[in-house]
Amino acid sequence: MFEILSNIVAALLTLFIFSFLYKDNPFYRFAEHLLVGVTMGYAIPLVYTNAFIPFVYQPIFLEGQYWLIIPSILGILYIFRFTKNLSWLSRYPIAFGMGIVGMGVPMSMHSSVLVQMRNAMRPIDNINTLIIFLGTVTILLYFYFSKPHKGLYGKFTNIGIWFMMVGFGASFGYTVMARISLLIGRIQFLLGDFLGLIK
């Protein structure tokens, strides 16, 4: 009985959201706002249990690491973001977090640039490696905006656009597949678990 009730709730909310395919309506808006509320409400106890208790309460009050009171006060300063005169205080916790940017400079250079470059400089021993090399170079040329994309240079950058279109197409295809598999999941739920039409 309880399972049937649970399925009815889930099915109704699923249908409320699907109703947007017809047009915007009060059922969809209700479900949309409910989703925002439940998602936020879901995060609160989880953050309390998985972040506040182990990293603030336990170390300070049970393990006596009183120096952690300082970052806790820094964290409380976030709340001043909404005050008119003291909103500048919220810059301190933000600044503390932003410090990691120093690590981001060498890390992003290494992982996104140097590693990619190293892999792009492999020996061109077959047609595929030649295509990959040509694609990488022409795309990088496309993103160089200090020179007008005209003449021979423009032809090269145009090849880059074609490569990017194939890449976007592949990503698009994957995204469609992921969304359709979610859609199949919901249809299976409605026809199977809820209506019992498919086993």
């Binding site: 609160i44 309390y48 972040a51 506040f52 990293f55 170390p59 970052p71 820094l74 964290g75 503390f96």
Partner: peptide, 11 residues
């Protein structure tokens, strides 16, 4: 350790 202590307050 400090960032972990600050992060719950961002929520």
């Amino acid at each position: 350790s400090w960032s972990k202590a600050i992060s719950p307050f961002a929520v």
